[in-house]
Nucleic acid binder design. Sequence first.
RNA 1: GGCGCUAUCGUCUAGGGGACUAGGACGGGGCCCUCUCAAGGCCCAAACACGGGUUCGAAUCCCGUUAGCGCUACCA
Length: 475
Amino acid sequence: VRFAPSPTGYLHVGGARTALFNWLFARHTGGTLVLRIEDTDRERSTESHTRVILDGLGWLGITCDEGPFFQGAYGARHQADAERLLEEGKAYRCFCTREELEAQRARAEAAGQTFRYDGRCGRLTADEVAARTAAGESSTIRFRVPDEELAWEDAVHGRISFQGRDLDDFVILRSDDTAIYNLAVVSDDIAMDISHVIRGDDHISNTPKQIALYRGLGRPLPVFAHVPMILGTDGKKLSKRHGATAVGDYQDQGILPQAMRNFLALLGWSPGEDREIMPEDEMIRLFTLESIQTKAAVFDSAKLEWMNGQYLSALPADELLEPVRRRLAQLGVSDGGRDLRPIIDAVKGRSRTILQVAERVAVRLDPSRSALDDKGEALMKKMGPAFHANLGFVIEGLAAISPDQWLAEPILDALKALAEVRGLKLGDVMQPVRVALTGSTVSEPVNELLAVVGRERSLARLREVASPRSEPGAA
RNA sequence: GGCGCUAUCGUCUAGGGGACUAGGACGGGGCCCUCUCAAGGCCCAAACACGGGUUCGAAUCCCGUUAGCGCUACCA
């Protein structure tokens, strides 16, 4: 099998999923996965795009057995195949210029008709062709689509059939002698001995053309498997509008490659038995083309993040150390030479992305980073100034007591009473307390917390909140 | 327009003629737990696009309608 992206953009999640299916299939069957970069569109292809694609695949753990090969290197073979078709009368030289074709198209459209290439150059005599060529007229090579059924047994859709008469004779070789997509693909797939072509649904309409080409070239057909497309949340083709569409974006957002791979695998494929979170070998073992969905799938990042959280909490802190440190550096937070692993362990289970883990670690390291979130804000309002007064009192007391008495019984009781007076849950009370305490997490080891409480800055904030102690409360 | 593909909860899906009162997961809602936020546990709401067939019986098979998507380039 092969994965054949064109380096005209970043590695799209749709492309990544196609690559993944190819990889899964190759590993499941013991086959070979070759990577082929389709760079025949010279105007849009760039080296940096190729780099990004390679990096993306590597990140996802999709290992190719052969390649990368660059389609641009096979121009000679593409030409030879086109020539052969030409010699055998299965293709013909077309002297129509882009302008002429464009004009015909416009005319047809204006008349409300469907434009179809009329095959006029296909009726030129050998002499005419020779004369026009000798005169220096440039030409393309067009494939003469036979009027016959072009059908195949798709591995995911079942039988799909087209009629040759519904297809225009299409260009296979440009006037500059480079191959057009359909020819290049077929020529390369034949040369590379590809037995299974696994690609996006959007290629279904190309398949009859390619089948005609295989026949013209006298070669047996590979198995075609057309996998469903991935759509945005509005059911439209995934684009920048939908936010992140490149796998690199998710990498940047702190998604784990294992999670991304697992999630992508489940977009359009299901192993049945309600299996969702699966290790790599399990996915490989269960994967078959027949169990691929025929319907397009919507990319739901909420589920991706949930799944990422699952992987995150299962991961030893050791493996999170490096990415978290990198992120910390980006945030400008110093780890002060501390061992971050215990802190990571404490927060990873409640985070969904590495970025979130890093943020939580950052707050531990530098409590002044914490900010009032929406919920805290709302609660502060709800509870009013009198509450703040009592809260401030409690917190002042907190700051004064010795480290290992933090949240000792009396304090906790006071908070509970406070909550009761205001008709709130203890948890709600803890929210502003946390905010006042500069965002520290109470479930941290006691010492750590106290270090926070003891900070002058923190105390200053507490007093601010606590100013009028007018209303006597439970505190 | 032509040709083709597709159609189960908001989303990912299970389902392959009786096991369907349509199952699971995300998301949503509620409750519990609780030293914040999370996480976790329990519960709830939520779907077979529509219309015809075939059949004793249809989410499952067939046809049509509708809708969505794809292709219709000297792009890939």
